[in-house]
Simulated scan of single mutants.
Amino acid sequence: MNIKITKAETLKAKPADEENLGFGKYYTDHMFMMDWSVDEGWHNAQIIPYGPIPMDPASMVLHYAQETFEGLKAYRNGDDILIFRPEMNALRMQKSNERLCMAEVPEEIFVEAVEELVRYEKDWIPTSEGTSLYIRPFCFATEAAVGVHPATSYKFMVILSPVGQYYPEGVNPVKIFVEDEYVRAVVGGTGFAKCGGNYAASIIGQVKAQDAGYTQVLWLDGVHRKYVEEVGTMNVMFVVDGEILTPPLEGSVLPGITRDSCIRILRDWGYTVKETHIDINDLMEWTKTGKLQEAFGTGTAAVISPIGELNYKGNEQIINNFKTGPITHKLYETLTGIQWGNLEDPYGWVRKI
């Protein structure tokens, strides 16, 4: 691409305390922006100062929620800048955009936009242990119209944020509330797409969980209301009698890139990984009897997050004495080691830019 660069006149002061970055609190000096129209396709690629986006009040994203996004991270290892599997994010965004009848962003444009912006803002990449530069690509409808139809114009943008741990517990076990009143998605809907509407619908469950003293919510399927699907911000896996169980990808669960990476690693270690329906009643019984040995969430933001407690209909069950299990720990150390460039990458997942 021919990317036009406009440098910010005044640069921000970078966070002085990398140990307390939080998640999504700070943003770099610049952002990437590109337009799409029926007549011109993708054009006008720019890196410009971070700031407000001028929008028409009738922009269709504000009325009909044609919007998708992605999340990935950049890491610094000495003089090297590393990004983890960006092509997978590009392909997932294409599928999300296809589902929402939006213009698809070609993989080469997606990856180049991410790499060029990260390279330009490389001084913002934190270096403390457990920190990274979070990358948020997103796409939305800009046509000004209040009739329901696929928009005829879109923007593709990328913003960056230096971050620490997603959960305040860090890599310690979190408490999960099982939602049995509301549902997140159904097969045939947009559950597999990474779009804002899914997350808007899930906030009420998250609020319920937090009000009850829990970190996150575990969603059940929308038909039977008993099969485990995913945590609000993560896919989920369970170690049951030495085997790893995780919900299948059938259209209502997000196809997580961290999930895919974990399955590959676990199978290479010799574990049996079953993508199968998991009845919440069985899961609670397995927790009670000790058959459930470990549980953990997988996602870009948290990477691997051990689960130490489940609450379903007031039945509270502690998992593995509320301690991080050996498989969970090893998986976290291995995956983050590959991502940060501290361990060999036998899969070719890490891109050096």
Rank of each mutant, 00 (worst) to 15 (best):
L266C: 01
K313P: 03
N235G: 09
H277C: 04
G242N: 13
N235H: 09
S261G: 14
K274H: 14
N281K: 14
V236W: 00
F238T: 06
I304Q: 08
I244F: 03
D241Y: 13
F296Q: 06
V239H: 06
T298S: 15
K274F: 08
A302I: 03
D279E: 09
L254K: 00
K288R: 15
G251Q: 12
I280G: 00
I257E: 01
P248G: 02
E250M: 14
T287A: 15
W286D: 06
G256M: 03
A295Y: 13
I307A: 07
E285Y: 11
K313E: 10
G232Q: 05
A295H: 07
K274L: 12
V273L: 05
G232D: 08
N235Y: 11
D241A: 13
E243S: 11
P248S: 10
R264Y: 09
K291H: 03
I280S: 07
A295Q: 05
L249S: 04
E285Q: 13
K291C: 00
I280E: 00
M284H: 07
T276I: 11
G256D: 07
A302N: 10
D260V: 08
A301N: 01
T287G: 15
V253R: 02
E309L: 05
M284W: 03
N235C: 09
D279V: 10
D241I: 10
I257T: 13
I280A: 07
C262H: 05
D279H: 07
G232C: 14
F238I: 07
G242Q: 12
F296M: 09
P306F: 00
S252P: 02
T289N: 02
L283I: 08
R264D: 15
Y271S: 09
P247K: 02
H277W: 13
I265T: 09
E285I: 04
L249Q: 12
K291Y: 06
E243H: 13
V240L: 13
